[in-house]
Design a protein around this nucleic acid. Structure first.
Lengths: 177, 177
DNA sequence: GGCATGTGAGACATCAATGACGCAGTTATT
DNA sequence: AATAACTGCGTCATTGATGTCTCACATGCC
């Protein structure tokens, strides 16, 4: 594969991420336009719309996996890990509307990472006992809300930034003291 | 309008609610089938797909408005009102996936009702100071999660039922003691 | 420089959803 | 019972998205 083509693929994925976030039913043509590429090229790089979506969700999954690693979910103090993970995710500027709603649930590995994180939070007494899946869902849901906050209420993100707000809110929701 | 037609309209709206919750892009034919009605009839009652969606969101809005009234948001102790409102909404068995995600944001009046509720919660010290819109979003997001919980974790809904879980979680999230 | 690969533009076939009719048969209303 | 309103079914036109293909041109690579 020529370096050229590689770049196209990347730009298409990039564009797909933002365009599909805005409208999950956007046509491949719109995605192509956003990527600065002809519709035909989208088809060349991805055999079908479905293939594109699949590649997209894999890409997102990889990124999330990297986040979990960078946040040192397994070793760092869990509250800190939660904060770092949130921070990194926000920095990715990923459109979570898509990644959470559309690209289906996070992959097994990401789920396991989150489950571990919440188990450790629980052991540390930062949250009350609860099923990891419940914790995960609350976390992701609140992340979605915090993510698209700034548009209408920048003043809310006072002290700790968006990550701070998210951590505070999640811990509260899950019964932390 | 004949009583007959009225019933059709109602059945179509009903069906649309559940079908669109499952797949927001479901065709009018699927909706018609679910309503036990021919596709043509859907078109007869609703000039266009858009018209159907509009009618649907108005219908939902009306229901929510009724909930706010029944919960005595203006007069009852706010925590109690929150609990009752949650309870009633869950009883409506409305598909919130649709009502929240698709039917756009709740109407002005519903928003105002919720804002009042959260303002009162704040005055009562049940939650920390925060913009009403933030409270609203957190509440709706968590409601969505609680709503589709039972499928995978019925044990979570212990003491106070789903409404109890929701209230506990929301108050915690918003900094209640 | 020359070859292989990638690309844009356009044409084309396909398919599903939408929306509009007409007609024959049913049902509510009076 | 007579009438007006509904409905199911089938037909048709239209539209937008998808996917495939070809051809001329460009661009990366050896």
């Amino acid at each position: 594969m020529r370096a050229d083509a590689e770049r196209s693929t990347a730009r298409i994925l990039e564009a797909a991420e933002t365009v599909l976030a805005d409208d999950p039913n956007a046509s491949l043509e719109r995605i192509g336009d956003a990527a600065g590429v002809a519709r035909a090229t989208v088809h060349r790089r991805f055999a079908s719309r479905q293939a594109l979506l699949k590649a997209l969700s894999e890409r997102l999954n990889d990124r999330y996996l990297a986040v979990i690693e960078q946040a040192k979910v397994e070793t760092a103090p869990p509250v800190l890990a939660l904060h770092r993970a949130s921070e990194i995710v926000f920095d990715l500027k990923i459109s979570h509307r898509f990644s959470i709603t559309l690209a289906s649930a996070p992959g097994r590995e990401v789920q396991d990472g989150l489950d571990l994180l919440f188990t450790r939070l629980q052991e540390a007494g930062a949250i009350a006992p609860a099923s990891p899946s419940w914790c995960r869902r609350v976390y992701l849901a609140l992340m979605g809300e915090v993510y698209l906050l700034p548009d209408e209420a920048p003043e809310l993100v006072e002290a700790g930034g968006r990550a701070g707000l998210l951590v505070k809110t999640v811990l509260g929701a899950l019964g932390g003291r």
